[in-house]
């Protein structure tokens, strides 16, 4: 542990994230101020995977790494749908997840929005009830397979602009 801090002090803070990227920096700045305006500084997301390949989950997890650190913009992934403003759904809706997805959606307090993640582009199957938009009313869709962390950040900004 001591060595860790020694190294940290010796090398100092490194700019090791995308804040150096001007476009992303501007997007994050606007996102933070929009969240401050529209969601009183705190946007809570409950993520549900209703049948993805798990790449979308990996990318959402990546949003919490120190490169992106979404929490500093006021965005939190929460454990309970009852704490959430947004239901973020990835993947297709499988036959076996259909009712569980609807249950989770019902638990969100109003006002609530559904944002979807990714294009699975799988052929039709008996075990798939369809894309999310056929089952729930979707406020915004973030495209990509899987959408990269930057795409998700951009997508969330577009979503907030849309609902104003």
């Amino acid at each position: 542990m001591i060595r860790f801090w020694q190294k940290r002090f010796k090398e100092g803070l490194k700019t090791q994230n995308l804040w150096a990227d001007k476009e992303m920096a501007a997007i994050k700045k606007e996102l933070k101020s929009q969240i401050a305006k529209t969601f009183a500084g705190s946007l809570a997301i409950r993520m549900v995977d209703s049948g993805s390949c798990n790449a979308c989950e990996a990318e959402c997890n990546a949003l919490s790494n120190p490169y992106y650190d979404l929490e500093r913009l006021g965005i939190h992934f929460v454990a309970s749908p009852r704490h959430a403003d947004i239901l973020l759904v990835s993947g297709v809706v499988t036959f076996n997840m259909y009712h569980h997805l609807l249950d989770a959606y019902k638990q969100l307090p109003n006002p609530k929005w559904v944002v979807t993640l990714g294009e699975c582009a799988l052929p039709a199957s008996f075990a798939i009830k369809g894309p999310v938009e056929r089952i729930l009313s979707v406020a915004h869709h973030i495209p990509g397979c899987p959408p990269e962390p930057d795409d998700i950040i951009r997508g969330l900004l577009q979503f907030i602009r849309k609902i104003q």
């Binding site: 995977d49 209703s50 049948g51 993805s52 993947g91 297709v92 499988t94 036959f95 076996n96 997840m97 569980h100 799988l122 052929p123 199957s125 008996f126 075990a127 798939i128």
Partner: peptide, 11 residues
């Protein structure tokens, strides 16, 4: 498990 059963084999 099998909540995410997508029917890949049949696909």
């Amino acid at each position: 498990h099998f909540y995410k059963y997508r029917g890949i084999e049949k696909m």
